[in-house]
Simulated scan of single mutants.
Amino acid sequence: MIAGCCLLAVVVPIATVTVAPELERIGALAVRARHPTMPDASSYVAVPRAVVRARRSLVTEVRQEPPALRAHVVAPGETLFSIAAQYGVTPQTLAYNNALADTAEVHPGQPLVVPPLDAAIHVVQDGETLAQVAARFNVDPDAVRALNRVAYEPADVTPGRVLLLPVPDGRYPGFRLRVSDAPRVFAPRLRWPTEGVVTQLFSPGHTGIDIAAPYGSPIVASDAGTVSAVGVRGPGGLAVCIYHDWGLETCDYHTSAVNVELGERVVAGQQIAAVGLTGVTSGPHVHWEARTNGVLVDPMTYAPDATSVIRVGGATGHP
């Protein structure tokens, strides 16, 4: 092995010397291969670069605060009805959110919390979800989210957070307000139940107002409320009664047909019946009654200030 190495060391220099011209030629070629000729700039093909664009412009927006609660201190002479009218909510809304079961429980100096609309004020408890609270009040969860500016759950619905649950017309599940003081002064004006001629007014011998109208004319709800009675009432014929949110109950007698059911929710102006001749009557008309705390009162106290025609005299029916 040592002899081979020595022989190679002697032979290689001799070979290098004898073929030097050839090696120079090969070396020159190798040097040129390491430095290729650069192409002219005109030979390049331009390739467009990819650009990523947002679908829409990014906008930083400040989330609006939910509607604020208001505080009211009862002044002398104020009632639940007058305060509710002042803030544009139903008496039931004031009573429900201030734990009042009777209109007589309001007294001067009493602090009241007033929501910005007919809504229940609810403080989130530990373990509650927005959907659970909404279901308790039969409210659409999306409506609760929109009203309270809830964007993320559960981050925006934590224990102690105050939520407003919209309850149109102030009909809170399981809640009924006792009306101990008649809302005669502060009551809103009612709609006439039908268009016609007033032929008989309220008097000690007549328990309501008679309005003569063509047979089959629509009878509408005088205000929003709940259907409290439907059926035949002796000489009054087929009747329908509505218990209105602010404490008054109105009844329409002598109808030819009733379009609503007991317990149904109605809005002001909704057709609930049609003028008829049922019961004891001398012509098609509506006998319109009003009660507060079960006591008959004059419907004209709550009727619109102006009427189309009032022609007193000529009884059209009974009672």
Rank of each mutant, 00 (worst) to 15 (best):
residue 217 S to C: 08
residue 271 Q to R: 09
residue 271 Q to D: 09
residue 198 V to E: 08
residue 266 V to P: 00
residue 205 G to Y: 12
residue 262 L to W: 06
residue 239 A to K: 01
residue 197 V to S: 11
residue 253 Y to S: 06
residue 268 A to F: 00
residue 247 G to P: 04
residue 244 H to N: 05
residue 273 A to S: 03
residue 265 R to L: 15
residue 243 Y to N: 05
residue 232 V to K: 01
residue 206 H to I: 13
residue 259 N to W: 14
residue 242 I to R: 00
residue 217 S to Y: 07
residue 260 V to M: 06
residue 210 D to N: 14
residue 272 I to P: 01
residue 251 C to F: 03
residue 268 A to R: 01
residue 216 G to T: 14
residue 230 V to M: 01
residue 214 P to F: 14
residue 200 Q to K: 14
residue 247 G to R: 09
residue 248 L to E: 06
residue 246 W to M: 09
residue 237 G to Y: 02
residue 208 G to P: 07
residue 254 H to R: 08
residue 222 S to T: 12
residue 225 G to P: 02
residue 248 L to R: 05
residue 235 P to S: 14
residue 243 Y to Q: 12
residue 217 S to F: 07
residue 274 A to P: 01
residue 205 G to T: 14
residue 206 H to E: 09
residue 213 A to C: 13
residue 235 P to R: 14
residue 239 A to D: 00
residue 197 V to Y: 12
residue 235 P to Y: 08
residue 242 I to L: 04
residue 241 C to P: 00
residue 212 A to F: 09
residue 206 H to F: 11
residue 234 G to Y: 04
residue 249 E to T: 15
residue 273 A to Q: 04
residue 226 T to A: 05
residue 256 S to L: 06
residue 248 L to F: 05
residue 198 V to W: 04
residue 264 E to V: 15
residue 259 N to C: 14
residue 222 S to R: 00
residue 234 G to R: 07
residue 233 R to E: 08
residue 249 E to G: 10
residue 218 P to W: 10
residue 262 L to S: 07
residue 245 D to T: 13
residue 218 P to C: 13
residue 272 I to W: 02
residue 248 L to P: 02
residue 248 L to S: 03
residue 217 S to L: 10
residue 202 F to R: 05
residue 242 I to H: 00
residue 250 T to G: 02
residue 215 Y to R: 12
residue 235 P to T: 14
residue 259 N to Q: 15
residue 202 F to P: 06
residue 273 A to D: 04
residue 200 Q to T: 15
residue 205 G to W: 07
residue 212 A to I: 12
residue 239 A to P: 00
residue 270 Q to A: 08
residue 233 R to L: 12
residue 270 Q to D: 04
residue 198 V to F: 09
residue 207 T to G: 13
residue 207 T to I: 13
residue 255 T to K: 03
residue 238 L to R: 05
residue 205 G to M: 10
residue 233 R to W: 05
residue 226 T to N: 00
residue 265 R to N: 09
residue 265 R to M: 13
residue 237 G to W: 01
residue 223 D to F: 00
residue 198 V to L: 10
residue 265 R to D: 14
residue 235 P to L: 12
residue 222 S to Y: 00
residue 234 G to Q: 06
residue 232 V to I: 11
residue 204 P to F: 09
residue 213 A to I: 13
residue 235 P to A: 14
residue 204 P to L: 11
residue 274 A to S: 10
residue 271 Q to A: 14
residue 267 V to S: 09
residue 201 L to G: 11
residue 245 D to A: 10
residue 201 L to E: 12
residue 238 L to I: 12
residue 252 D to R: 04
residue 201 L to F: 10
residue 271 Q to T: 14
residue 210 D to Y: 11
residue 237 G to F: 03
residue 241 C to A: 10
residue 252 D to M: 08
residue 199 T to S: 12
